[in-house]
Amino acid sequence: RAQAEKLARNQAPVFIHGESGTGKEVIARHIHALGARAGGPFVPVNCGAISPELMESEFFGHRKGSFTGASADKSGLFQAASGGTLFLDEIGELPLAMQVKLLRAIQERAVRPVGAHAEEPVDVRILSASHQDLGRLVAEGRFRQDLFFRINVITLRVPPLRERREDIPDLASHILARLAVREGGAPRRLSTAALERLQAYDFPGNVRELENLLERACALCEGEEIDVGDLGVEGDCSPLGATAGVEGGTAPVAEPEEGREGQDEVERLRIIRALEQTRWNRSAAARMLGMTLRQLRYRLQKWGME
């Protein structure tokens, strides 16, 4: 939080790096709210959720008649964020062709709508985020180095929930209070044993998984107190989460190894675990993991699991 407050004082591009579900957008909104652009719009966009064919139009807008279906002029995300902040979530998912156009827009502070003959000036601050290691993507030729340097002026790392277990009681209380407002009742509370179980759990899905777990516990809980049995977290819940599992299936979670192969294996096990938790409902698993269905399918295809 202290780092976010410092970053809010200037307009330098910030890259927020952290695992899925750690709250990268929350951090971005906090930076925006504390800065000089707080009175302007905050426009978040998941770069992995936009069809590659529509990206240029979505980002920069288009002119009437510029392509089939363009029945009127349309402003893009850059224009919508004018005077405020444009948050590019999962920027590592952008195709290389779009990365070139994005780089020019950031450098020139201007965009050219599809079908237009001239560029239009835009005034936005760029905040970006990804759970991927952009430096590794650059080395693999999957992300442009010049764009990497442009957006990565300052890096803010958001630690996973397993590295800040002391936050779990406050986060759980906040989530339960928010659920109570939505349901129109009094907030449920966690038993001492349930809270201890949560603090021992590894949370591969981070804060988003904690939210899902507590929402399910509230639905299954009979009384006002959530106990261990309502959480659905079973097995050995040691700090490393070696064999943690939930109702509907268990899967081992490996301790991260060094190198790309180790990272891929950890991610594969995390995805398998989410699929087993949701009984192989891919849409639900993607939400739990903090990724789009398209991103999940890409990984399953890569591993021959589609």
Rank of each mutant, 00 (worst) to 15 (best):
Ala180Lys: 03
Val181Trp: 13
Glu183Val: 03
Glu183His: 03
Glu183Met: 11
Gly184Phe: 05
Gly184Cys: 06
Gly185Asp: 10
Pro187Ile: 06
Arg188Leu: 01
Arg188Asp: 00
Arg189Ala: 01
Ser191Met: 01
Ser191Pro: 03
Thr192Tyr: 01
Thr192Cys: 07
Ala193Phe: 04
Ala194Gln: 12
Leu195Met: 12
Leu195Lys: 05
Glu196Trp: 09
Glu196Pro: 01
Glu196Asn: 08
Leu198Ala: 02
Gln199Ile: 10
Gln199Thr: 15
Tyr201Ser: 04
Asp202Glu: 13
Phe203Met: 09
Phe203Lys: 02
Gly205Cys: 11
Val207Lys: 10
Asn212Met: 09
Leu213Cys: 05
Glu215Ala: 13
Glu215Tyr: 03
Arg216Trp: 08
Cys218Ser: 05
Ala219Lys: 09
Cys221Val: 02
Glu222Ile: 06
Glu222Gln: 09
Glu224Phe: 00
Ile226Val: 05
Asp227Gln: 08
Val228Gly: 02
Gly229Val: 11
Asp230Tyr: 02
Gly232Cys: 10
Gly232Tyr: 13
Val233Thr: 07
Glu234Tyr: 14
Glu234Leu: 15
Asp236Lys: 01
Asp236Phe: 09
Asp236Glu: 06
Cys237Ile: 11
Ser238Cys: 05
Gly241Leu: 02
Gly241Met: 06
Gly241Ser: 03
Ala242Tyr: 06
Ala244Trp: 08
Gly245Met: 06
Gly245Trp: 03
Gly245Ser: 09
Gly245Gln: 07
Gly245Tyr: 14
Glu247Pro: 03
Gly248Ile: 02
Gly249Val: 01
Thr250Ser: 14
Pro252Thr: 10
Val253Tyr: 10
Val253Phe: 14
Glu255Ile: 13
Pro256Asn: 03
Pro256Tyr: 13
Glu257Leu: 13
Glu258Gly: 14
Glu258Asp: 12
Glu261Ala: 10
Gly262His: 12
Gln263Cys: 10
Gln263Ser: 11
Glu267Gln: 09
Glu267Lys: 09
Leu269His: 09
Arg270Phe: 04
Arg270Pro: 00
Ile271Gly: 00
Ile271His: 01
Ile272Pro: 00
Ile272His: 04
Ile272Trp: 08
Arg273Tyr: 12
Ala274Phe: 05
Ala274Met: 07
Leu275Ile: 01
Leu275Phe: 09
Glu276Arg: 14
Glu276Thr: 08
Thr278Phe: 11
Thr278Lys: 11
Arg279Val: 05
Trp280Asn: 05
Arg282Cys: 06
Arg282Ile: 15
Ser283Asp: 14
Ala284Gly: 00
Ala284Lys: 09
Ala284Pro: 00
Ala286Val: 03
Ala286Thr: 07
Ala286Trp: 13
Arg287Gly: 01
Arg287Lys: 15
Met288Val: 07
Leu289Ile: 06
Leu289Gln: 07
Gly290His: 11
Gly290Lys: 08
Gly290Pro: 08
Met291Arg: 07
Met291Val: 07
Thr292Phe: 04
Leu293Met: 13
Leu296Ser: 05
Leu296Ile: 15
